[in-house]
Design a binder for these strands. Structure first.
Lengths: 195, 195
DNA sequence: TGATACAACAAACGATCGTTTGGTTTACGG
DNA sequence: CCGTAAACCAAACGATCGTTTGTTGTATCA
């Protein structure tokens, strides 16, 4: 619970640097293996100084996690709005998701790397944040013209699973891009499911 | 480096219990958050006693990881052999993979929960073990009759990603079973990809 | 410009981490 | 039944963990 400041924030506030460093460490090593000392050193501060901004390591993780949801949601919603056809909108959402996850990584990767059970006291908050984000995909899949009886929930879980897991094998060398990968994944489903 | 015993193992050897306890802790909490003390206590031993069987925590993880690959490979190969049609064989492989992952868990879950990068000194060994296992799926997808130009590599990565990620949302309540889920995932791909 | 509160430093706290070392028990082969 | 080695205990080692506490500097606003 950060106490509300009586005055506005100072211009030399290093909170953004703290969040960036924490996002990088959490994304690279996971929650438990990323130490507060690592994070502090990465942004030129002392370990104890982090506790001016956050009461506990868990709260720092929640802040990074929330920023990741914010960033991903904005990217996906922005991409979806540029398309009109349902399948094109879904593909745009997947492409934006993969680009955020695989290219300008860190914050988005924390959503994939850190599981709610890793942070027991904040598990509920993390689950709520993630569910909030995934609603965009639920909406896109709801609007798809599909054969009657198709399990849209299974379709969503399959697609999101494939997208998220790509973080663990994708390498930037080679000709495959996040966008091309999203195109392949969606097309593997689209042709067989055309209503 | 476990020294080769000069005599055969004793009947009160608790190595299996150590592996079981380690598998459970690694699967539940991940590598970093599972402590040697937790594992030792779970099988009624003292922390230092684990070092009679393994020279380091990393080696214990590698042993569990290898056992997980063994168990998954056996289950999937056994399931595949009971079918003849290519798509039925793939579905059987997915069902066996999901059953091992979601029901009689622990060892199989370690493959999904622990990333090679979590264990720097053993990352190469873990990658090799995982690649060894995934060859079963590569073979099944190679034998699929698919439209020309289909990217079988993307298909494999999509399917395995969806299967593995299910560990993070699947709950046993409700009517969905690992088998029914595998059926849905494969069918979502099959109908559109019939050669 | 002086008072205020933001933002960080400096230095430690106890707890827990992986691991080591030397001694003890006990099942097993001869 | 005895000697040996397998299997574990008992107790600690130094390192690192998240966190706390008291103090210091400095940007901001009246």
């Amino acid at each position: 619970m950060a106490a509300k400041p009586l005055r506005s924030a100072r211009s030399d506030n290093r909170l953004p640097a703290v969040l960036d460093a924490a996002a990088r460490r959490f994304a690279e090593r996971g929650y438990a293996a990323a130490s507060m000392r690592d994070i502090a050193e990465a942004c030129g501060m002392l370990p104890g100084s982090l506790y001016y901004h956050f009461a506990a390591k868990e709260d720092l993780l929640v802040a990074v996690y929330g920023a990741g949801v914010e960033q991903l949601s904005a990217a996906v919603r922005g991409a979806v709005e540029k398309e009109t056809a349902p399948w094109a909108r879904l593909e745009a959402a997947c492409a934006a998701h993969l680009e955020a996850l695989l290219e300008h990584g860190d914050y988005a990767q924390v959503l994939v790397r850190v599981l709610p059970v890793d942070v027991p006291n904040a598990a509920a908050r993390l689950k709520a944040l993630r569910a909030d984000y995934e609603r965009v995909f639920r909406d896109q899949i709801r609007d798809l013209p599909l054969p009657p009886g198709t399990d849209r929930s299974a379709l969503r879980l399959m697609l999101l699973g494939a997208l998220n897991w790509s973080r663990f094998w994708f390498v930037e060398k080679g000709r495959e891009t996040p966008r091309s990968l999203a195109r392949k994944f969606v097309h593997l489903l689209e042709e067989s499911l055309h209503a």
